[in-house]
Design a protein around this nucleic acid. Structure first.
Length: 107
DNA sequence: TTTATGACCTGAG
DNA sequence: ACTCAGGCCATAA
């Protein structure tokens, strides 16, 4: 292919979607974690942007993606209910209990 | 081009 | 608990 590769168009979106699909029910993953999984450490912000633009039709468990503090997505009413329904534990401050529900491959 | 904004992260005070 | 600063990157104006 000669010529400039147009690329740069959220090429990562497909991989992000795949990674999100792997998060087991009852657990949550952070944006930074997803970024690492797709081989782009430090790109947490990009993951967040992709999530915000993810079509609902894909039916991804995007409610299982939270920030490293365990805070839920702003302006999304219902994320909390979905997580609670799966057994995710919340602390009194309204944040997810990352120590128990953070998806760590170690354990 | 520069500036500002955003479902971010980590560290420091 | 909070704010700030520095780092990261895509988009919009």
């Amino acid at each position: 292919m000669g010529g400039r590769t147009k690329s740069s168009r959220s090429d990562s979106s497909g991989k992000v979607y795949d990674a999100v699909r792997l998060i087991p029910p009852g657990k949550v993953a952070t944006y930074g974690q997803i970024a690492c999984m797709i081989g782009k450490p430090g790109r947490a912000r990009m993951v967040g942007r992709i999530m915000s633009r993810t079509p609902a039709a894909l039916r991804l468990p995007c409610h299982r993606v939270v920030n490293s503090q365990g805070r839920l997505a702003p302006g999304w009413d219902g994320q909390r209910s979905l997580l609670v329904a799966e057994g995710v534990l919340f602390r009194n401050n309204g944040l997810v209990d990352m120590r128990r529900c953070g998806w760590d491959l170690l354990l």
